[in-house]
Structures are given as C-alpha cells and as structure tokens.
C-alpha cells in the first residue's frame, strides 16, 4: 500500500473506533470523547492529503488542520458545559436517563 492509503486507513480506523465508542457507551463524557476521536480522524486526513496527495497550495492542509483543532477545542468546551448542566439537573451523567424535555 502507498503511504497515502496507509494514512487514510489509519484515519478510517480511528474514526470507526470513535464511532463505536460514542455509540456503545452511555456515559456522556465518553460519548464526547468518541466524537473528539472522530474529529481528530478528520484532521489526520487533512494532513495525509497535504503530505501525500496531489500538490496543491503548500499550506492549505496545515491551515485546515489548525482550524479543525480550534473547532475541536470549542466543541469540547460546549460539550463539557452541557455535561455539567445535565449533571446539575439529574445528578448523574448517564445519557439514557437524560430523556426528559422538561425539568
């Protein structure tokens, strides 16, 4: 396999692991971390295509990866705030129990 295909396989598997984790676990923090893993797999792809893909503008892939990291940070901040809000509401952070629209 060429390096590009190896990198893409790596990111696909990382995405799949994140997806499995996000679907399988009921703890909201772990679900959030699974989403983070899927996002990381996305930025791995940006770097893989930047390095091994057809030549484009030299910095585009790197710029995209940086933006992806910034967006991931924002996502975590909001996600953790939601987790804490849910915890204050129902005294635990298990997602299956967070099924009420009304407090």
């Amino acid at each position: 396999m060429s390096p590009l295909q190896l990198c893409l396989a790596f990111s696909s598997l990382l995405f799949a692991v994140g997806l499995t984790g996000a679907l399988a676990r009921s703890n909201s923090i772990l679900v959030l971390l699974g989403l983070e893993l899927m996002l990381t797999a996305g930025s791995v792809n940006f770097i893989a295509f930047w390095r091994f893909g057809p030549p484009a503008s030299p910095a585009t892939g790197v710029v995209f990866a940086i933006f992806a990291i910034a967006v991931a940070a924002a996502e975590t901040a909001v996600g953790l705030a939601l987790v804490i809000a849910v915890y204050r509401h129902q005294r635990n952070i298990r997602l299956p129990e967070a099924n009420r629209l009304k407090g």
Partner: peptide, 17 residues
C-alpha cells in the same frame, strides 16, 4: 455499536483501497 463501527470501517477501508 460494534457492528456499526465495523460496517463504517469496512466501507471506508474498501473505498481507500
């Protein structure tokens, strides 16, 4: 969840290869 993850991984890996 494992089935969904495996399916996604299979599709992506097939596409990549």
């Amino acid at each position: 969840a494992a089935a969904a993850g495996a399916a996604v991984a299979g599709v992506l890996l097939a596409a990549v290869s």
